[in-house]
Amino acid sequence: MSSPPQAPARLEVTSVLRALADPVRLDLVRQLSRSGTAIACGRFDTTVAKNTLSHHFKILREAGIIATHRDGGQALNVLREDEIDEAFPGLLNAILR
Rank of each mutant, 00 (worst) to 15 (best):
M1E: 06
M1K: 12
M1Y: 08
P4E: 05
P5Q: 11
Q6M: 10
A7N: 12
A7I: 11
A7R: 14
P8H: 09
A9E: 13
A9R: 15
R10Q: 13
E12K: 15
V13T: 05
V13H: 08
T14C: 03
T14A: 13
S15G: 09
S15E: 14
V16F: 03
V16K: 08
V16D: 07
V16E: 05
L17C: 06
L20N: 08
A21F: 02
D22N: 13
P23H: 12
P23A: 08
P23N: 13
R25T: 08
R25V: 08
D27C: 03
L28H: 10
L28E: 05
V29G: 05
R30E: 06
R30N: 04
L32M: 05
S33M: 03
S33F: 02
R34D: 14
S35K: 14
G36N: 07
T37D: 09
T37H: 15
T37E: 13
A38R: 12
I39L: 11
I39Q: 03
A40L: 01
C41N: 13
G42E: 09
G42Y: 05
F44L: 04
D45K: 11
T46I: 07
T46E: 09
T47C: 05
V48G: 03
V48S: 01
A49W: 03
A49R: 14
N51I: 12
L53T: 02
S54A: 14
H56C: 06
H56K: 15
F57W: 11
K58F: 06
K58G: 09
I59K: 15
I59F: 01
L60F: 04
L60H: 10
E62F: 00
G64N: 09
G64E: 07
I65M: 05
I66Y: 03
I66F: 04
I66W: 04
I66H: 07
T68S: 10
H69K: 08
H69Y: 12
R70P: 00
D71M: 08
D71K: 11
G72Y: 03
Q74R: 15
Q74E: 14
Q74T: 02
Q74P: 00
L76V: 01
N77A: 10
V78F: 00
L79P: 01
R80F: 00
E81R: 15
D82C: 05
D82Y: 01
E83S: 12
I84G: 09
E86Q: 14
E86S: 14
A87K: 13
F88Q: 07
P89F: 07
L91A: 04
L91V: 01
L92F: 10
N93H: 12
A94Q: 13
I95T: 14
